[in-house]
C-alpha cells in the first residue's frame, strides 16, 4: 500500500492512564490506526505527521466484542492499535493537552 494520506492511516491518539504511563516511562505513543494499515505505513505516517524518529512499531488487533440485545446478537467495531516507540528526547505534542 502506497502512503498517500497519513491522516487516514492514523485515526486518533489514545490518551488513557495506561497509555500515559507507557509514554512517560518508555516514550511509547499509542494510536488507533486503520484496520488495513501496516507497521511500515504507521512508521511513515507518524514520522511525517509529527516529525519524529520512530524506532519500533507494534500492532495489536482488537476484535469487536460480542454484544447481545434480546434475540439479536452482534459485535462492536473491530479496531487496530499501534504502539509507536519514538527516539528518546523526542515528543509528540498532541498528547500533552488532548483527551
Amino acid at each position: 500500500m502506497k502512503l498517500k494520506d497519513p491522516y487516514k492511516i492514523i485515526v486518533k491518539p489514545i490518551i488513557t492512564e495506561k497509555s500515559t504511563l507507557l509514554r512517560t516511562e518508555s516514550n511509547i505513543f499509542q494510536f488507533y490506526i486503520r484496520p488495513d494499515a501496516t507497521k511500515k505505513l504507521v512508521k511513515q505516517s507518524v514520522e511525517e505527521l509529527f516529525k519524529v524518529d520512530v524506532l519500533n512499531v507494534r500492532i495489536i488487533n482488537l476484535p469487536g466484542k460480542p454484544r447481545r440485545r434480546g434475540l439479536y446478537t452482534g459485535k462492536t467495531k473491530s479496531r487496530k492499535k499501534a504502539l509507536v516507540k519514538v527516539k528518546d528526547g523526542q515528543n509528540i505534542p498532541i498528547f500533552e493537552g488532548l483527551v
Binding site: 490518551i15 488513557t16 492512564e17 500515559t20 500533552e96 493537552g97 488532548l98 483527551v99
Partner: peptide, 18 residues
C-alpha cells in the same frame, strides 16, 4: 471525571487543557 482515567489520576496538563 475524564474518560480513560480514574478520578484524581489524570495528568496535570490534561486537566489544564480542559
Amino acid at each position: 471525571q475524564i474518560p480513560g482515567f480514574r478520578p484524581g489520576k489524570a495528568p496535570r496538563n490534561i486537566i489544564i487543557a480542559r
